[in-house]
Design a protein around this nucleic acid. Structure first.
Lengths: 107, 107
DNA sequence: GAAAGTGTTCGTATTTTTACGAACAATAAA
DNA sequence: TTTATTGTTCGTAAAAATACGAACACTTTC
C-alpha cells in the first residue's frame, strides 16, 4: 500500500499513460472522441482484433477512468469520461511544459 | 511489419505513452526536466530501485526517443530529447483537444 | 420455447515487462 | 598493478499484458 516515493500526480499520469500505451486503445479513444458512435459493435468493427480483446481493452480504459460504459439493451454504449479526460489533458500539458531546459542540458 | 490499420500518429502517441506508463519513468523524466542533474548516479539516488533497473528504464525512455544519453567519463549524462519532447507535447495536446463531445455522448 | 443478436467472462497460450544480483567494462586513482 | 568509481549487460525469476476461441448471460424475435 506504500507509494514508493512517487507523488500522487506522478502515479496518476503514469496510470493514464499506461492506459494509452497501446495503439488499439489510442484508436478506441480517438474513435469515441470523434463522436461517430459509442457502441461496442461499431468500435469492434473498425478494429482488426477479436471482440474478446476489444472488450478487454475497453475494460482497461474504463479502469483507468478515461471512459465509461453503460448498457443500452441490447447494446453497450461507451463514452469518454469528460471529467477525467480534462484531468488527463491538464496533467500531460503541465508535465510537458515543466521542462526547464533552455537550450542545453543541465550543468 | 504491417501496421494493423492504425495511423502513424496513433502508433507514435502510443509509443510515447507506453514509455511514460510507469511511475519510475515519469519520475525520471520529471527529474531530468527539472534540470537538477543529468547524471545516472543522481537519478539513481532519488529512486528506490536497483541501478540495473534504473538503467533499464533509461534505455526504454531512450528507445522511445524521450531522452538521450552521452558518456562523460566517468559518468553518463542523460538529457531530455527536446525535439521529441516537443513532438510528444504537441501530440498529446492535440489528442486531448480532439474530443468533440459537447456536453453528452454521441447519439 | 427455440433462435438470433450483443457483449462479457473464462481458460489458456504467448509475449513483454519489471526487478534483482552478479559479472563485466572502462577509466581514474593509489 | 591493484583498487575504486561509474554504469551497462547478462541471466533469471516472477508478474502483467496481449490475444484468441469457446462458453456464457441477457434480451428480443420468431
Amino acid at each position: 500500500m506504500e507509494n514508493k516515493g512517487y507523488t500522487i500526480e506522478q502515479e496518476q499520469i503514469a496510470r493514464f499513460a499506461k492506459a494509452m500505451g497501446h495503439p488499439t486503445r489510442i484508436a478506441i479513444l480517438a474513435f469515441l472522441a470523434s463522436q461517430q458512435s459509442c457502441f461496442f459493435g461499431d468500435i469492434h468493427e473498425v478494429l482488426p482484433i477479436a471482440k474478446a480483446t476489444v472488450s478487454q481493452h475497453l475494460k482497461e480504459l474504463k479502469d483507468a477512468g478515461l471512459i465509461e460504459g453503460e448498457i443500452e439493451t441490447p447494446k453497450v454504449r461507451y463514452c469518454i469520461n469528460r471529467e477525467n479526460w480534462e484531468i488527463a489533458r491538464k496533467l500531460f500539458a503541465d508535465f510537458f511544459s515543466d521542462c526547464k531546459m533552455d537550450g542545453k542540458c543541465c550543468g
